[in-house]
Design a protein around this nucleic acid. Structure first.
Length: 105
DNA sequence: ACATGTTCCTTAC
DNA sequence: GTAAGGAACATGT
């Protein structure tokens, strides 16, 4: 567990239910500025239920990836979880961009 | 829309 | 210590 991961997970847990964030915003929040580093931290997710990585999507409002795959049953589960929290996806994209959560906003 | 470059962190040799 | 990889973003063609 590195400090970077702690920061990423901390910020991730700060995301309220029914909202989602993007790799870019999350990266900016943790102070790295690089979404790829965040993706690495998320894919290493030591505690999946403690770290709602499914609440993190791409800046393109697409799902991006999940469990190391950009498509598959994992992605479907991700959408399902988000939908369960009130975040609907349409056409593989976030139906409501206003549900994007910005840190400090 | 597709291809290329950039940026930061983690892991492997 | 050096090299390669990754759930991305931005820019150019």
């Amino acid at each position: 567990m590195t400090k970077f991961q702690q920061k990423v997970y901390g910020a991730l847990k700060r995301i309220p239910r029914g909202r989602v964030t993007t790799y870019g915003l999350l990266a900016k929040e943790v102070g790295c500025g690089s979404a790829r580093a965040v993706g690495q931290a998320l894919k290493h997710n030591p505690d999946a239920p403690t770290v709602p990585c499914h609440r993190v999507i791409r800046s393109d409002l697409t799902l991006g990836g999940y469990s190391g795959s950009e498509s598959g049953a994992d992605i479907r589960r991700k959408v399902r979880l988000l939908k369960q929290e009130g975040v609907a996806f349409e056409g593989g994209r976030l139906a409501n961009p206003k549900q994007l959560f910005r840190f400090g906003a």
